[in-house]
């Protein structure tokens, strides 16, 4: 009876989440019971695919919750990946990752300058970042470098022994764990702390926030720079952790995918993470089916799958969800 009462007290949102998580778990374990290692492979793919996307989506959430549209996530990720990799070839992986995050934050701050101080159209400012990132990283790209060291795999004691989930979630690399933590922390901070309340106020109704003494510009600067740092980290995750290399244009649209995931996740960190996992799952499934020749699809069609999915998802959700009201609007004190 206590459980039923507790369920009743939950908000509809939390109840839906709970139902979704439980359904997912049951489905996963049924699949695991039948196919064993194939299910593990698909879910492993899901986590690897979704982690940089989730992190980049957190960047989008942080920016838009405070009223700035960040189309430049793609470019911030690309530069983050570039700096992190070449930093890692020069002075080790820790230095590389930190450098990637710092440069990401600088690009975030740059977007903030464009959007808040110079009042450039935010879509154009983001596009400038993207074009600049593609140009600079291609120009300074050097072939044949290798990193000093590589990311270890950390196994979490006890948790790693859980069948299926242990292998999927608790035998990962450091930045993947960091992403899990960031999602949870951001979810709590955004909805349970004064900072979160003020951030949301700045994104919804900046003049009201201003009236009660919140420094709108300061919040936008801080959050957009922090968002840039997350995008830089997502890039570092891609180059230093996931692939151990850098290639020209290696983010290949993930920054934009992240924006779709942010919208699908209704600007909430936990929901966006779920959306990223969902994307990862679908891609993992198709890859596995293709690998086993159950379906025989040319690689180009596999390549366009995330994009087709994104358009379908947006066509379904974008008109129905509500963005932070002041997202994209510059704020002028009156």
């Amino acid at each position: 009876m206590g459980i039923v009462n507790a369920l009743r007290r939950l908000s509809p949102d939390s109840r839906n989440t709970l139902v979704a998580v439980l359904t997912g778990l049951v489905a996963a374990y049924i699949a695991y019971g039948i196919w064993d290692f194939k299910a593990t492979a698909v879910l492993g793919f899901m986590v690897r695919y979704s982690t940089p996307l989730a992190l980049a989506a957190m960047c989008g959430i942080l920016c838009e919750r405070s009223g700035v549209v960040n189309i430049g996530i793609e470019g911030q990720m690309l530069v983050g990946a570039f700096v992190a990799f070449f930093g890692a070839t020069w002075a080790g992986i820790v230095f590389g990752v930190v450098a990637g995050v710092v440069v990401g934050a600088l690009l975030g701050a740059f977007l903030a300058v464009c959007a808040v101080s110079w009042r450039i159209n935010q879509i154009i400012a983001g596009t400038v970042i993207n074009i600049l990132a593609a140009g600079v990283t291609s120009f300074f790209y050097r072939q044949g470098r290798t990193m000093k060291g590589s990311m270890p795999t950390w196994e979490i004691p006890l948790l790693k022994d859980i069948p299926l989930l242990g292998k999927v979630f608790f035998q990962n690399q450091p930045l993947t764990y960091l992403t899990f933590a960031i999602v949870i922390v951001l979810q709590v901070m955004l909805f349970r702390t004064p900072w979160g309340l003020r951030t949301r106020a700045v994104g919804e109704h900046p003049s009201a926030a201003d009236t009660v003494g919140v420094n709108v510009s300061l919040y936008r600067y801080g959050n957009v720079a922090a968002g840039g740092a997350l995008a830089g980290l997502a890039g570092a995750l891609l180059s230093v952790e996931a692939t151990g290399t850098f290639e020209r244009g290696m983010t290949s649209g993930r920054g934009f995918l992240a924006l779709a995931i942010m919208i699908m996740g209704r600007w909430r960190p936990s929901l966006a993470w779920a959306a990223a996992l969902f994307f990862g799952l679908l891609n993992g499934l198709v890859n596995q089916l293709n690998f086993e020749r159950v379906i025989d699809v040319p690689p180009q069609f596999i390549g366009m799958l995330p994009d087709v999915l994104t358009i379908v998802v947006l066509a379904t959700f974008a008109g129905r969800v509500r963005a932070p009201a002041a997202s994209g609007q510059p704020y002028t004190k009156e």
Binding site: A260, V308, L314, A315, A318, G319
Partner: peptide, 15 residues
């Protein structure tokens, strides 16, 4: 459908 053209065209590019 309210899909922002920046995202849709980028996705279209890859497709």
């Amino acid at each position: 459908r309210g899909v922002h053209e920046v995202i849709a065209t980028i996705m279209m590019n890859t497709i």
